[in-house]
Amino acid sequence: MVIREIETRDADAFWQMQFQLDKETKFMMYEPNERTKNLELIKNIIQKAIDGSNLLLVAENDTEIVGFISVQRGLPNRIKHTAYIVVGIRKAFQGKGIGSEFFKRLDLWARQNSITRLELTVMSPNIIAKHLYEKYGFVVEGIKKNSMFVDGEYVDEFYMAKLL
């Protein structure tokens, strides 16, 4: 397993991984087959990470991308010290230390880039992810009631953050 920064050449493989992830879990934003294939948008996101504005790491098994952590820094001056995180790992590769490695590298990047507040949301039923975030110092700051609509039911999300 290799954890590395994303490269422009990864755009299609990155989209494919997210498309598969949408089919495997109910804990991501998109439903199966809802994600549209916009490689220009993905390349733009990748370029911002390459330029150093944001962070986008991928987990690679052989040549297949199987997980990611996306970290987007706040743009206005008042929130430049913050970053918002999205994490996804394909089901077959969960529980193998990928998430832990992502969060170790996230902390290093945040400190190197003067980020003092990290934020994320997690659906309340996603206890495994919540425990991972808590292991790396995130705390629940609030609950977003009825934040998502999944399988005909409203689902709450925990709003979590970590101060560095």
Rank of each mutant, 00 (worst) to 15 (best):
F19L: 12
W15D: 05
I45S: 07
A13Q: 08
T36R: 09
N38A: 12
F27P: 09
A13C: 06
Q20Y: 07
E34H: 09
Y30D: 03
Q18H: 06
L39V: 10
N38I: 15
Q20L: 12
E34G: 14
M28N: 04
E24P: 05
F19S: 13
T25K: 04
W15M: 13
L21D: 00
F27L: 04
Q20I: 09
Q47E: 03
K23Y: 03
N33A: 01
P32W: 02
Y30H: 14
Y30K: 05
F27R: 03
L21I: 06
Q18G: 10
L41V: 15
F19W: 10
N38Q: 15
L39F: 06
Q20H: 10
I42V: 06
Q47C: 08
K37P: 15
A13G: 04
I46F: 02
Q16K: 12
L41S: 10
R35G: 09
P32F: 00
E31W: 07
N33P: 07
Y30N: 12
Q16C: 09
L39I: 11
N44M: 04
Q16Y: 12
A13Y: 06
L41I: 13
L21T: 07
F19A: 08
T25P: 02
D22Y: 00
E34Y: 10
Q18F: 06
K37Y: 09
W15K: 06
M28D: 02
D12E: 12
Q16N: 15
K26V: 00
A13L: 08
M28L: 04
E34N: 09
N44D: 14
N44F: 11
N38E: 11
E40M: 15
K43L: 05
L41A: 15
Q18E: 01
L39T: 03
K23I: 02
N38K: 13
M29D: 08
N33K: 12
D22M: 00
Q18S: 05
F19V: 04
I42P: 01
N38S: 12
M29K: 13
D12P: 12
Q20F: 11
I45W: 03
E24F: 08
K43G: 03
Q18M: 07
F14Q: 05
R35K: 11
L41G: 14
W15R: 04
M17A: 00
D12H: 15
L39G: 14
Q18C: 08
E34V: 02
L41Q: 15
Q20S: 05
F14G: 05
M28W: 11
Q20V: 11
F19K: 07
T25G: 04
A13H: 13
M29H: 14
F14V: 01
Q16M: 12
I46Q: 02
E40G: 14
N38Y: 10
E24W: 04
T36L: 13
K43I: 04
N33E: 08
A13N: 07
E31G: 10
L21M: 06
I45G: 05
K23V: 02
D12S: 14
I45H: 11
M28V: 14
N33H: 04
Q18K: 11
Q47I: 06
T25E: 03
N33G: 07
I46D: 01
F14L: 06
I46E: 00
M29P: 13
M17W: 11
M17K: 04
D12C: 14
K26H: 05
T25F: 01
